Each structure stands twice: as structure tokens, then as C-alpha cells.
Simulated scan of single mutants.
Amino acid sequence: MASKNKVQSIVVSWWRKNTLLLSTSRTLNTIATGYDNRILKSPPLVSLDFPDVWTSSFTNYSAPSTHNLGSEEIARVIDGKQIADEIISAVGLEVRRMKKTIGEVPGLGVILVGERRDSLTYVSNKIKACEETGIKFALTQFPDNCKEDEVCDAIMRFNTDPSFHGILVQLPLPQHLNEEKILGMLKLEKDVDGFHPMNMGHLAMRGREPLFIPCTPKGCVELLIRSDVEIMGKTAVVIGRSNIVGLPVSLLLQRHNATVSVVNESTLNPEEITREADILVSAVGIPNLVRGNWIKPGAVVLDVGTHPVEDEGGCEEGGYRLIGDVCYEEASRVASSITPVPGGVGPMTVAMLLCNTLQSAARKYSFV
């Protein structure tokens, strides 16, 4: 057994040292991935694909830890806004360098249907970030009762316009529109939201690198890395299985070699499962769903949920404020680190969108 474990250790060590070389022929976007990683700290996914070699170490038993909860907040606040601002600033520098070097800038086209307050806020934040970085931005807006063909025609115009390198359809769409059909119209090379089946498929498969990683999951992992949170070997639980966040973030955490469980609406004992998590990600949009007794003492909590609550004195425009899936007051007394709402994952989503758009333009122009 000792000899077998020694061989396995040697194999894993060799793979880690040589995996970038081995993956060169398999990656879809070598230029842009390397370029992206000059700004972000997240490594290429193929560099994380260690061989699936099991050892006996996982059977070692350790007694459960104990933790006396006090009344004071103990969690470190993960400041997503500050980190996002740093990334957006770096994107701006690269956009200016691109313009000076080759006379081109990245372009982002956004399609917005309806007047949901949260969607309007998100789009407004994206416009502001594009203006700050020098990324070309165009918004096509439709009323709630628009026809599906109108939205598809707008996508096709962005698809064929060479000055736009990224296209985003702001979700959710009104129920009368076929979301799958509309997203399927996006040109793969411009799918900066990362929702194309090809991108999702490559995210799920070892040895593959998607052209784009969905923005919110990408932002979650970047927050963990920049906060010095170890992902490899940790137990992660994702609450929610949407195509936008829950599914891709669970896949991405697996690619980073975490052991991942997904809690959904049919899970019989969600609080028991979440209490096992070293890393807990909640993305269902149900206010205060996750209470303090759902959280393992010392866990890292990423709250992706955003829920507008009527509040005439709220800090957000329109007389409402945002709260998350996690009951912050309780969770902050149990977790070691936690993201606030707002100011946590949300700003990172915008920053990752700009990174993906820059990455797309860099790929098109072979700009390094």
C-alpha cells in the first residue's frame, strides 16, 4: 500500500508540473486565457485537471470541531466592491493599451427587455463600468410585450457587427419569450455571459477550457482566491441549481478540485448538508433563507442572492434595498468570511463581464 501511494504521489506531482504543457493542444483559447490571467488570479482550468488517483488518506477520521458562539460578529467581510474596482482598473489599462497599440477597443452589446428594477440597476452598473474602462457599449431595449423576433433580430445585428466582441441578454426575460431559443442565437465567440451549451459543456469536462466562464461563478472563485481561501480538497455546498449561477458555480468548484454538493428545492435536509460545507454558496434569491444554524463554524459564505425589499429610506434608487439569501446578522457570528449584499458578489459579476469582453477582443485581434 505504501508503495502504491508513493507512485500515486509521484504521478500527481509530475502532472501538476507539466499540465500546462500537456493541455496546450486541447485549450480553445490559449491566447485569451493567458491574457486574462494577467488581470485575474484564477488559473486556467486545464491546469487544475489532476489525474483521478485515489489514496487512502480520505478515510482518516478527525473528530468534529466545537465552537462557542458569541454575540459579536466574527466573520471577515469579503469586500467584493474593492476587489472588483481593482480588476476594472486593470481592464481599463489594457483597453487603453489595446487602443494605443492597434487602434481597436472591445465592444459590448446589451439587450434589455422590460423594466424590472433590478435589471435596470444591473444594466446601469454595466454602462458605468464600460464608460470607466473605455469599452464601447450599446444598449438595445424593448418593452415587456415585445415579440421574440425583435429580440432575435437585435442579437443578429450584434452577431454580425465586428465592432462588438461581446453580447449579453439581460436575464430574466418575460415568460412569453423562449429564453433557450434567444440565448441559442448568440454567436459562440461573443457569448461573454458563458451560457452557450458549448461553453457550459467545456466547463463541465476535464481537459477542456471554455471560451468564457459565466460571470457570477467566475467572480465567486476569484473572490475566494483573492481572499486566500483554499478550494482544493474542501467541501463546498451550492444552494440552487440554476443555469445562470448554481450549475456553473458547482462545475467550476469541481474543476478547482473541491468536493461539491448541490442543494435544491427537493432536498429533504438542506440545513444538515450545508452544515458540512467549508465553502457555502447560496444562489436562489430567497431572502434570509440561510440561517446561522445552517452554517458550519468557520465556513466561508458567498451570498449570491439578491432580493429587493420595499424601503422608502433604502440606499438604492427607487425606494428599495437589496438583501441576500443569507441572514447576514446570524451568519456573520458563525462564518469565518462572508460576502455582504450589496457590495459582495454583485460588483464582481460586472468586473468578470468586462474581463470576458476584453478577452474576446484580445482573441479576435491576437492581442497579447
Rank of each mutant, 00 (worst) to 15 (best):
H67N: 09
N5A: 11
P174W: 10
L93C: 01
L354K: 00
V151M: 05
G314W: 07
I127P: 03
E180R: 15
P270V: 05
G80Y: 11
T24G: 11
G314V: 11
V301S: 08
V304Q: 03
N257C: 05
V262Y: 03
R241Y: 08
L223E: 06
S336G: 04
L20D: 11
K187R: 15
M200W: 01
P297D: 07
P162Q: 10
A277N: 06
E222T: 02
S336C: 08
Q82W: 00
A362R: 05
W14M: 15
G305H: 12
I111L: 11
T306I: 15
E222S: 01
Y328T: 12
V229N: 08
D325G: 01
L45V: 07
R241D: 04
N37A: 06
G184E: 10
C315L: 11
G246V: 02
Y122I: 11
R208M: 13
S360L: 02
D191A: 08
H176I: 09
I39T: 09
R363S: 14
M348V: 02
C152Q: 12
S25Q: 13
T216A: 09
P210V: 04
N243I: 07
E104L: 03
G246P: 00
V221P: 02
T306V: 15
E310G: 13
T140K: 13
S65G: 14
M156K: 15
I78P: 10
R76P: 05
K364F: 13
I182N: 10
T274C: 01
I88Q: 08
E104I: 04
G346K: 09
R16E: 14
S42Y: 00
S62G: 03
T259G: 07
M352E: 07
S57V: 13
I273R: 08
E72M: 06
S62M: 06
I225H: 01
C220R: 07
S57P: 04
I102N: 08
V262T: 14
K218N: 12
V46Q: 05
A63G: 02
S332C: 13
E310Q: 15
G343E: 02
D85C: 01
S250T: 00
N264P: 04
L183A: 08
V113K: 12
T160L: 14
I111R: 04
S366G: 07
E104F: 06
S266N: 10
V7Y: 11
A361M: 03
I167E: 12
L171P: 09
S89C: 05
I39S: 00
M98F: 07
E271K: 14
R16L: 06
D191V: 01
V110N: 07
N145Y: 07
P43S: 00
K187H: 09
T133P: 02
S9A: 15
A283M: 04
R275C: 12
V309L: 15
A154W: 00
C130D: 03
R363I: 00
R226K: 11
G134M: 10
V123K: 07
G207K: 03
I239L: 06
T216I: 10
E312D: 14
K17G: 09
W14E: 13
Q359E: 11
G313P: 01
I83D: 07
S65F: 08
Y328E: 05
Q141G: 02
